[in-house]
Amino acid sequence: MMDIPGSPTILVVDDEPRNLRLMEALLIPMGYRVQLVENGEAALELLEKISPDVILLDVMMPGMDGYEVARQVKSREKTRSVPIVMVTALREVTDRVKALEAGADDFLTKPVDKTELTARVRSLVKVKAYHDHMTNYQKELEAAVERRTRDLKMAMSRLEVAALDTVYRLSMAAEYKDEDTGAHIKRMSNYSAAVARRLGVGENTCTRILHAAPMHDVGKIGIPDRILLKPGKLTPEEWVIMKQHTTMGGRILEGANSPHLRLAEIIALTHHEKWDGSGYPRGLSGRKIPLVGQIVAISDVFDALTSRRPYKDPFSYEKSFAIIREGRGTHFAPHVVDAFFAVEKQIREIKEKYQDEDPSAFVALAGL
């Protein structure tokens, strides 16, 4: 082979050494690199190592003929795009049709005319070059899209971390006046995710519940301290004002683009609704209460029962669990109560784990 760096490579396959030498003598002056092999098996073996721009293939060869070589070349992903020129003395139409069906792209008739050879090879070298260019362009485009997508995902991830941190701090601001509220929103959000998962809610939605549940009482920002922190029982007039934290929270979160905040709006509005319709603000009952509202309701009540509040000391596990059971079918959805007790071990673990007031713990909790 005559090696001309940077030049197109022509693979010549012929069982006649004189034909190989002739082709080499014709092609090298045209500026091509030439590879010569004497049979089809050797050609296929060489194609594992090189990627020619054109194959000049004799048809009538002992062993594997040109038709079979062409079929195998076109069946391989690596060589499928390489143009094949059948060099043959056969002139019958049926022979040429058979060659086309095997994968031939063009023909040269023996004895080969130099002018015809030049035209065929130059044309097909350009075809192969264009194909390679488009293939490389497609790969570069796909790589660029992949890079941009990866960069976008990283940017979105950073934005989500910032958004969740903001959410947590907004939730803390709403409940900052209560005792133990930092730990409260971490516990009740984890209770909610555990119950949702037990109910068969998809993992993405469970994660959103984990992030959205802390905003359940964001409307408390608008409740006066004299009512929010009152150690005794609220008067009917004060209770009317207190209940407004649900609709205030809904208005604060209304119209958000974030799926977490849209879910938080539903939670803020419905976590005080009761299964029997005696809850607020809308008096919804049964299945009319969104499932996420039902889930957060039981999580919020359980943590309130087991936590110290301005108006009460914490209840024991036994008393708190008993109150939840008593509320099955009245305050709480029966199937949600069942799911809650099915994960009782997790509930206890969460209660014991999240006792601190570190704001970063909530974001770390989300795995971010």
Rank of each mutant, 00 (worst) to 15 (best):
E318M: 00
S285W: 06
R328I: 02
T306Y: 04
S320P: 04
V13Q: 04
P314M: 05
M215K: 01
T181A: 13
V337W: 03
Q244I: 02
I252T: 11
L11D: 04
P231K: 09
H271F: 05
A297L: 11
I241S: 04
M64T: 04
S320Q: 03
S75W: 01
E24P: 08
W239I: 00
V121H: 08
K274L: 04
R226T: 14
S189A: 15
E326K: 14
R122K: 15
A173F: 12
Q294T: 01
A143K: 06
D106Y: 04
F315M: 15
T88N: 05
E101N: 13
R122G: 02
D313G: 10
H260M: 10
G200A: 03
A194T: 06
R226K: 11
S360N: 12
V240A: 11
E101R: 14
M248T: 04
M30E: 15
D303C: 10
M154N: 12
K233Y: 09
H184L: 06
G232V: 03
E92G: 01
D132T: 02
I223V: 14
R328L: 09
N136V: 00
V296S: 11
D151A: 15
A99G: 14
V13D: 03
K233W: 06
F315Y: 13
Y191T: 06
F340T: 09
A264K: 01
R96F: 00
V218Q: 05
E38R: 13
T270P: 08
A43T: 09
R120Y: 05
P5G: 08
Y67N: 11
K114A: 15
R21A: 14
G200Q: 03
